[in-house]
Each structure stands twice: as structure tokens, then as C-alpha cells.
């Protein structure tokens, strides 16, 4: 790792003003230290968000769930009420990395982690994402890359929590500098507006965050139905999604009243699929309805040479996630 200045801010405002183009924010630190050890992040200053108090709370109130950005993934996975009412969050959190990573990794860090594309993570490859002029994945090894939202770069977004939070209509609270760069400004926006495709933003991050902004909190309303997060990975632990699907579904008298679906591991951003949700809404819960949703979920997919399999895999995950959310008590039905 390169040498850097170490800042322990006493307040959120200090943290915001300690950040800048050559600084990086440290939350859990698993992703940042990985970037620094790979020499793709060379910050001159690291700002330790953990020295700001009050960002690690889990609160459940009348308006739903409030999660501090520093809540660790193991707490999300184990929380009884989250497991019961916002199950997709607990399932997504428990699917991340390893016990060691979940004990350290934070919600905010999971949402803001950088792509795992091996060209992006390689010091020797000056790729588009690092200010170069080529996406090596186009002609290179692209088995794990995106089939949706690609161009001009084709990495897959690695977050497990984001698809789960998207189907739960989560909002993200962001702190940044106030007017004329002074003070503190807080803003709240839907998580669905938080991410940026490579066509929208190539260098610096996969979100709309400026280099002085910090995710402080995630707000999740009361769910309208049962939710789930299903993830397919090559190894049963310590792996990112090859394809994942989050679903929230409300069933009434054999019909799907309302649904939300989002994909992970197959697009350059956590990928909401409103067309698939529309294909479900108002329809009887049967095989034809599920097939229709799976069909439109991958509409517009543009696979690369080695990742055509992701179309079929994604459709399978969509089918299973719908069944899992519709019949949470019937696990056998899901795997069938």
C-alpha cells in the first residue's frame, strides 16, 4: 500500500470536508484495502468513517427500517425482525463473502464497492474505468461480465445488498458539503437513482456520489409483500453472484397483486426490471405468468463471447425468486 495521511474525523461534517479528489473513505475497509493492495487506489488521505459516532444503528419504527451505513453485514443477516419482514436484506447480507468479511464489511461499503472485473483490479491494465482507452473485457476473458447496461465498459456490479434494497424501495441518505462548499447538506433519494452505468459515468465510481459525499443511512419502508434474494455463484462461499435476483411479491387470492424485481451480477449497475414486475402485476400466479416475467427480465441483453450462459441463468434465478417470494414456506417448490 502507498503511504497516506490518516484522518479520524470527529463529526460527519469534518469527514465530508476531509474528503476530496485524492482522499478515500474507509468504512469496513475490506474493499478499499483490496484496491490499495492492488495499487488501483493510491489515496493521499484515508478518512475513517468509523470515528463518526451514530452511523451504525438499526432502528425499526412506524415508517419502516433505518439502517446506518456502518451496520455490518453479519448484523443484517442475524437480525430477527429483518429476517422476518425484510427477508431479502438478510438473505443478501448472509450471501456476501465469508463470515470474516461479513463481520467487518458494512452496508454502505457493500453498496459503494468497486467492480471485481479482473482487468479493473489489475494494476497492469489501464482500462477505461481507470482512465485508459480500452475495455479489455470486450475481446478478453469475459465470462463473469455484464450482459445488461454495458458499454463502453462491461464489468458486472458486485453488490448483493443493492438488488435486495431496490425491490424493497429503499432510499439512500447522503451527506455532502453545503452551499459554497461550506457546512453540511443532507439529501435523500431513491436507491434506484443512485447508480450510474459506464455510459453515464466511467471513472471514479459507479454511483452519483461526488468525491466529498458519504452514504450515511438507508431507509426501507414497510414491505408490501414477502421478499427474497437468490444468488447463483460458482463456489458456495466467498464468491460474487454470476446471476442473482431479488423479488418482493404480494399475493392475494391466487393472483399477484404487486411485485418488484431486480437483478444482481449481470449488469453494470444493480438492475431493476420494472417490465418483469409489470408482467406479474394482476396476473394469476402460475407457470405462464412466471415465464412471461423471466422472458422480459433479460430483454435487451447483449452478451459477450463467454457469458451467453447468463441469459438462461438469469431467467432461472428470476423464476426461482418469484416462487420463493410467493411461497416462502415451500422451499422444495423453489428448487424444482
Amino acid at each position: 500500500m502507498n503511504r497516506f495521511e490518516w484522518m479520524e474525523p470527529a463529526s460527519l461534517e469534518s469527514a465530508v470536508h476531509g474528503l476530496g479528489p485524492r482522499a478515500r473513505l474507509l468504512a469496513g475497509g475490506v474493499d478499499l484495502l483490496g484496491e490499495m493492495k492492488d495499487h488501483i487506489a493510491l489515496p493521499e488521505r484515508v478518512v475513517n468513517l468509523k470515528s463518526v459516532s451514530g452511523l451504525d444503528a438499526i432502528e425499526i419504527g412506524d415508517h419502516g427500517l433505518r439502517l446506518g451505513a456502518l451496520v455490518t453485514l453479519d448484523r443484517l443477516a442475524a437480525h430477527p425482525q429483518i429476517r422476518h419482514r425484510w427477508r431479502a436484506i438478510a438473505e443478501a447480507a448472509s450471501s456476501v463473502g465469508t463470515p470474516q468479511i461479513r463481520n467487518q464489511g458494512t452496508l454502505g461499503g457493500n453498496l459503494c464497492q468497486r467492480p471485481r472485473c479482473w482487468y479493473f483490479r489489475s494494476e497492469e491494465h489501464k482500462c477505461l474505468k481507470k482512465g485508459g482507452d480500452i475495455c479489455f473485457a470486450v475481446a478478453g476473458e469475459n465470462k463473469y461480465h455484464a450482459i445488461l447496461g454495458g458499454g463502453p465498459a462491461f464489468y458486472a456490479h458486485p453488490s448483493d445488498l443493492a438488488p435486495a434494497l431496490l425491490v424493497l424501495n429503499a432510499q439512500v441518505r447522503i451527506a455532502g458539503p453545503g452551499p459554497r462548499g461550506r457546512g453540511l447538506r443532507l439529501r435523500t433519494l431513491p436507491l434506484a437513482e443512485f447508480y450510474r452505468t459506464p455510459a453515464q459515468r466511467l471513472v471514479g465510481g459507479e454511483t452519483l456520489l461526488s468525491d466529498q459525499e458519504i452514504v450515511t443511512e438507508i431507509l426501507v419502508p414497510e414491505p408490501f409483500g414477502d421478499s427474497t434474494y437468490l444468488k447463483f455463484r460458482e463456489r458456495l462461499s466467498h464468491d460474487w453472484a454470476m446471476a442473482a435476483c431479488a423479488a418482493q411479491i404480494q399475493i392475494s387470492a391466487g393472483h399477484i397483486k404487486r411485485a418488484q424485481l431486480a437483478l444482481g451480477g449481470v449488469a453494470t449497475i444493480p438492475w431493476p426490471v420494472p417490465a418483469a414486475a409489470r408482467a406479474l402485476a394482476g396476473q394469476p400466479l402460475n407457470q405462464a405468468t412466471i415465464e412471461a416475467a423471466a422472458h422480459v427480465a433479460v430483454a435487451g441483453a447483449q452478451p459477450l463471447r463467454q457469458n451467453w450462459y447468463k441469459i438462461q441463468l438469469t431467467q432461472t434465478m428470476v423464476r426461482r425468486a418469484i416462487r420463493q417470494a410467493a411461497f416462502p414456506e415451500k422451499a422444495d417448490f423453489v428448487s424444482a
Binding site: W6, E8, L26, G29, V30, L33, G34, V46, N48, K50, S51, D74, P99, Q100, I101, N103, Q104
Partner: peptide
């Protein structure tokens, strides 16, 4: 009390907390 990877933690951070 929780298992973590010592290689992915900074000593200054652990000390600060």
C-alpha cells in the same frame, strides 16, 4: 470477539476503536 482477517484491517483503525 468476532473473527476477521487481520490483513484487511489497519492497525491505526483497530487502535482508534
Amino acid at each position: 470477539g468476532r473473527p476477521v482477517y487481520a490483513c484487511m484491517n489497519l492497525a491505526a483503525d483497530v487502535a482508534a476503536r
